[in-house]
Nucleic acid binder design. Structure first.
Length: 836
RNA sequence: GCCGAGGUGGUGAAAUUGGUAGACACGCCAGCUUCAGGUGCUGGUGGGGGUAACCCCGUGAAGGUUCAAGUCCUUUCCUCGGCACCA
């Protein structure tokens, strides 16, 4: 009575799909292709919770629907399996990261398989597999050859808790964004990738891709293009020059001092002896402040700084201005030096007020510039040859004058910095270079992959070398070209390396001659739909685009951009319960009474929606859902609960609701005599069916599946109520249900007498004519207020509509004795009488 | 502080893009079925008033445009994401 046996049924079809390779990627090239990709997961030790599969289910629906629309679909899954957590877990459990990773992958794969996702598992890959990272190293070699990978002694983000450096993109407010561990500045020899060479290119093609505007904006802001000028100031009484960057060269006449970043290399040279003490104290004080302190109270913090005793000559008017140092000027942006125009820049203004430096107005507008900076447009004054010009004209004129005098030129600066590409860890790709007599040499492709050696201990060495330095036999090698003794590189690549190109390897994952076959690449690229979380906006997505554009410049790939369409799925939150002391409770340990929550012992707790996490006791696992309600019900609920981009709060009762829907579907199919081969007069049911068919197709385009599912529910509600349901209608229904609930659909499909998988049946197309109603209900308003409704033929003309509307009892009451001023008729919708 | 997205029943959400607000589902209520129910079926369910027909109010708040506003405009409040001395 209850419904169908989901456990046996789902197991049966999952086995069938595997045995029959139902989802093998087609090899014929006559059909259109569709490459639909999920951001592959890092296989963590804790496994999946129900928040993870939302995106996977959505892409699976798209993949299945596209197959049914006649596309060759590439739909694959793999593992971003290098990374710090596995290494730490390995140390904790005293086993190897390889073992940890293997185990975690097995868990993830089991959980994903259970959901009935239609991946071509024969293309599964893992970034930590030598047959994969061989080609990651191969791409690194190409970057190195082009001068895009280089070593440098640079100030880095060092994270003592992790024992490694981090990229700028991984650090926010002085802490590692993943773990919240503190980060400090340090100078170290590191591998860098010259992503800044691609700043312009990465901006340029952002317009060509179908991505959420928000993500594009974030990438634009991260790259941070800024147009302005570099200007060289002669240091007074010296042949040295201070080079500054400015977006406002038009305000050079308002310059009353110069500011260098405390770390600026020129500071030592120019500081006057009597100021040396103060300058050194200040630099010391600044260097002691952590990034966290410096960024957390940025912006509106009081300005600090000291005078160097030196002065510089303003090239635009020959004026001498003092040179200060201050930490509001960043060493890492522009040239690490600015000229200050306090009248027209808020930061300079605050600094000038603090140290009583002159403020000279050069642009007309605003209030008193002694009180507040004016940053708007206006005619220039006190500016010699710029007088009278507006900002834009003055900027051009100033730059032209500087250029002629060889004191400056137009310049574009980017916020983006080069990518710090080494990590002092074990569990990552070895960098394929060797060091011979202090010289770094790229290993020839023939010696790839450089495999990770097995270690007994994965911690850094006693003298602070990365863990790989422990592998003596591995570390000491010979140059395969010259035979000279050599040392291997002990830094490894960051986790982002493997994910920068995995979408390319999926195209041809078993190729051992090349990273991919060019013909295959041409067929499958670009990725048509890429689905994942928005947290990768400036990390993975920027890095992958960078590698892809380099590969494109080298002729290895055929598209400029890797991901044609990007879609961000929202995060699913779980309900958590916490008492006043902050202790969390499981759902089964609490109960609701009169709208408030208590533990079973009566301790009041607060219920909150939070990110699912083991420590918050609010994790719901896909296993539990599959066991109790079945994968099909879980899949439906993931999509039914909210639009894909919205995330939402997990409610297990909602899964039960989806299960009830499937049970009703089952009953419609199995009620004796319900399904009939003869036509049935049931316009409502037929309309519901065609509405659902339409919505399913729209959903595949818009990735809004919640309304498609509710329309399928409407059809089943109609079918449940009806005595007879035409077989042909139900047949079509099973096919639109199939992408969402593939197991039950496959079973029903066979019950309907088909002998091949529903996965390759044709997705039915709706008939627009069937959506039209013969009789429509028209709203009748008087003065814009609803006073009744009337049923009229859909094609009724205006006068018929008005007559019917007037005849409506309640409406007639309102019209009686009133003067009719106006009649509004919207055919098929409403009639509005405006009366006086 | 700046930039972006969003505020609709007890809950998740719909709303053909200016035309009957709340589809569908959860939850709740009532009835039927059942030895039993974390079952199934039927009906009800935005708030207030009324025996009823109906009436009034209602999409964060306040104004405005319009015959008509969840939808358009102005102001404002709140929530969530991103950036944060970028010269």
């Amino acid at each position: 009575m209850a419904g169908y046996e989901h456990r046996a049924l789902e197991a049966k079809w999952q086995t069938y799909w595997a045995e029959n390779q139902t989802f093998a990627t087609p090899s014929d090239r006559t059909r259109p292709k569709y490459y639909v990709l999920d951001m592959f997961p890092y296989p963590s030790g804790v496994g999946l919770h129900v928040g993870h599969p939302k995106g996977y289910v959505a892409t699976d629906v798209v993949a299945r629907a596209r197959r049914m629309l006649g596309y060759n679909v590439l739909h694959v899954m793999g593992w971003d399996s290098f990374g710090l957590p596995a290494e730490r877990q390995a140390v904790r459990e005293d086993i190897s990261p390889q073992q940890v990773t293997e185990r975690n992958i097995a868990t993830f794969k089991r959980q994903l398989t259970m959901l009935g996702l239609s991946y071509d598992w024969s293309r599964e890959l893992a970034t930590s597999d030598p047959s994969y990272y061989k080609w990651t190293q191969w791409i690194f070699a190409r970057l190195f050859e082009r001068g895009l990978a280089f070593e440098a002694e640079v100030p880095v983000n060092w994270c003592p808790a992790l024992g490694t450096v981090l990229a700028n993109e991984e650090v926010k407010d002085g802490v590692y964004i993943e773990t919240g561990d503190a980060v400090e500045r340090r100078s170290m020899r590191q591998w860098m990738l010259k992503i800044t060479d691609y700043a312009e290119s990465l901006l340029a093609t952002l317009g060509d891709v179908n991505w959420p505007e928000g993500i594009k904006k974030m990438q634009q802001d991260w790259i941070g293009r800024s147009e302005g000028a570099t200007v060289r100031f002669q240091v007074d009484g010296s042949n040295r020059e201070v080079e500054i960057f400015t977006t406002r060269p038009d305000t050079l006449f308002g310059c009353t001092y110069l500011v260098l970043a405390p770390e600026h290399p020129l500071v030592e040279d120019i500081t006057a002896p009597e100021h040396l003490g103060a300058v050194n104290d200040y630099r010391e004080q600044v260097s002691r402040r952590s990034d966290r302190e410096r960024t957390s109270d940025a912006a509106d913090a009081p300005k600090t700084g000291v005078f160097t005793g030196a002065s510089a000559v303003n090239p635009i008017n020959g004026e001498r201005v003092p040179i200060w140092i201050a930490d509001y000027v960043l060493a890492s942006y522009g040239t690490g030096a600015v000229f200050a125009c306090p009248a027209h820049d808020e930061r300079d203004h605050a600094f000038a007020r603090t140290f009583d430096l002159p403020i000279r107005q050069v642009v007309l507008g605003g209030e008193d510039v002694q009180k507040a900076a004016y940053t708007g447009d206006g005619p220039h004054i006190n500016s010699g040859f710029l007088d009278g010009l507006d900002n834009a004209a003055a900027i051009s004129a100033a730059i032209e004058r500087l250029r002629i005098g060889e004191r400056g030129e137009r310049t574009i600066t980017y916020r983006l910095r080069d990518w710090l590409f080494s990590r002092q860890r074990y569990w990552g790709e070895p960098v394929p270079v060797i060091h011979v007599n202090g010289e770094t040499r790229l290993l020839p492709d023939s010696s790839l992959p450089v495999e990770l050696p097995r270690l007994d201990d994965y911690r850094p060495t006693g003298d602070g070398q990365p863990p790989l330095a422990r592998a003596e036999d591995w570390l000491h090698t010979t140059d395969p070209v010259t035979g000279e003794p050599a040392l291997r590189e002990t830094n490894t690549m960051p986790q982002w390396a493997g994910s920068c190109w995995y979408y390319l390897r999926f195209i041809d994952p078993h190729n051992d001659k090349a990273p991919w076959d060019p013909e295959e690449e041409k067929y499958w690229m670009p990725v048509d739909l890429y689905v994942g979380g928005a947290e990768h906006a400036t990390l993975h997505l920027l890095y992958a685009r960078f590698w892809h554009q380099v590969l494109h410049d080298l002729g290895y790939v055929s598209t400029r951009e890797p991901f044609q369409r990007l879609f961000n799925q929202g995060m699913i939150h779980g309900q958590s319960y916490r008492d006043a002391r902050g202790k969390y409770y499981y759902r089964r340990e609490v109960e609701e009474r009169d709208g408030a929550w208590y533990t079973l012992d009566g301790v009041p707790v607060t219920a909150r929606r939070e990110k699912m996490s083991k420590s918050k006791y609010n994790v719901v696992t896909p296993e539990d859902m599959c066991e109790e309600y079945g994968a099909d019900s879980l899949r439906l609920y993931e999509l039914f609960m909210s639009p894909l981009e919205d995330g939402g709060d997990w409610e297990t009762s909602g899964v039960a609701g989806c299960r009830r829907f499937l049970d009703r579907v089952w009953r419609v199919a199995t009620d004796p005599g319900k399904l009939v081969s003869e036509p049935v007069e049931a316009a409502e049911m037929e309309r519901a069916l065609h509405g659902a068919m339409k919505r399913v197709r729209e959903g595949v385009e818009s990735l809004r599946f919640n309304t498609a599912i509710s329309d399928m529910m409407v059809f089943i509600n109609e079918a449940t109520k009806a005595d007879k349901v035409p077989l042909a209608w139900f047949d079509a229904f099973v096919r639109i249900l199939a992408p969402f609930a593939p197991h039950i659909a496959e079973e029903l499909w066979r019950m309907l007498g088909h002998s091949t998988s529903v996965a390759h049946a044709a997705l039915p197309e709706h008939d627009e004519a069937k959506l039209k109603l013969d009789i429509v209900t028209i709203a009748v308003q008087v003065n814009g207020k609803m006073r009744g409704s009337v049923e009229v033929p859909a094609d009724a003309d205006k006068s018929t509509l008005l007559a019917a509307a007037r005849a409506e009892q309640n409406v007639a009451r309102y019209l009686e004795g009133a003067t009719l001023k106006r009649e509004i008729v919207v055919p098929g919708r409403l009639v509005n009488f405006v009366v006086g």
